[in-house]
């Protein structure tokens, strides 16, 4: 069984939802990343998304764009990212790691060489933002041959027919982009997310992760109530950015955020009217 599948099954048995933090590898410098990965696991992360820096990250808001720029200032390459995963695997063989990025670095390396090297490093999934399943035929074959899950995005604009087609190709989990926009946007509508997740659920047994716009423990809790996994990107990367000048503080700053999210998610879905009760503004 793949690490990702095993991870989701174990969580399901405990009636818990997956917390998936994202960091850009090499941000703000390469030596920060592996210790940060371990710190995130310790703080309650179930699965890690590691961003592969790219010069032209078209789907990212300013937070992750700047993270890419910081990482690229040190020349962090796809091969460097694979080396980081290898190093992480020396002491952690259980937490799934998904690489997230753009097609071109993988194109240049070649699908077959990438798949072989990624599997050897201990990568469990690949999500390339600008690679819809229509273009991904050869890549999917290369990944599945080495048991790496191809992870695809679904969006608010994805119609039912495409949802079915994408879910049929998907491995590990599907990633629902919770809003029309770029990463780190601020207009998340949880009710709309719930409706779309229900629609996706009719098409697949694969776990459904939700990301884009999840900024704090409260949104994480509300999204966890309707999805199988909560992906937190820009909020984590912001913590890294705030401490870029004093990297020794990064692990704790990120861990603190994840611990809050973990606690809120494990406390279960927010009760109806909790806001009113807390603040005494009931009717």
């Amino acid at each position: 069984m793949s690490r990702i599948k095993g991870c989701f099954e174990a969580l399901k048995a405990e009636n818990k939802k997956a917390l998936i933090p994202f960091v850009t590898a090499g941000d703000p410098s390469p030596e920060v990343t592996v210790p940060l990965m371990h710190a995130m696991v310790e703080a309650g992360a179930d699965l890690l998304e590691l961003g592969v820096p790219f010069s032209d990250p078209m789907a990212e808001g300013p937070t992750i764009q700047k993270a890419c720029e910081r990482a690229l200032a040190h020349g962090t390459s796809l091969r460097d990212v694979l080396a980081m995963v290898s190093e992480f695997r020396q002491t952690n063989t259980t937490t799934p790691v998904v690489l997230m990025g753009y097609m071109n670095p993988v194109e240049i390396m070649g699908y077959q060489p990438f798949a072989t090297a990624a599997a050897a490093a201990g990568v469990d999934g690949l999500l390339t933002v600008d690679m819809p399943p229509e273009e991904a035929g050869d890549l999917i074959v290369a990944l599945k041959a080495v048991e790496i899950d191809p992870i695809f995005l679904l969006a608010p604009t994805t119609v039912s027919e495409r949802i079915a087609k994408i879910c049929a190709e998907a491995g590990g989990f599907v990633y629902y982009v919770s809003l029309k926009g770029v990463t780190g946007a601020a207009n998340l509508d949880v009710a709309a997310v719930e409706a779309k997740v229900a629609q996706i659920r009719r098409h697949t047994e694969v776990p459904i992760g939700v990301g884009f716009g999840i900024r704090d423990a409260e949104t994480a809790q509300r999204v966890a109530a309707v999805a199988d996994a909560v992906v937190v990107g820009s909020a984590v990367v912001n913590r890294v950015a705030e401490n870029a000048e004093s990297p020794e503080k990064i692990n704790e700053a990120v861990a603190a955020l994840l611990r809050e999210m973990r606690a809120a998610m494990d406390a279960g879905p927010p009760q109806v009217g909790w806001f009113a009760r807390l603040f005494g503004a009931g009717n």
Binding site: A59, M103, V129, P132, E134, E135, F152, A155, T157, R162
Partner: peptide, 12 residues
């Protein structure tokens, strides 16, 4: 050629 974009843009 082809269409290498984020999923949100596929339908449009």
């Amino acid at each position: 050629g082809g269409r290498f974009v984020a999923e949100t843009l596929m339908e449009p």
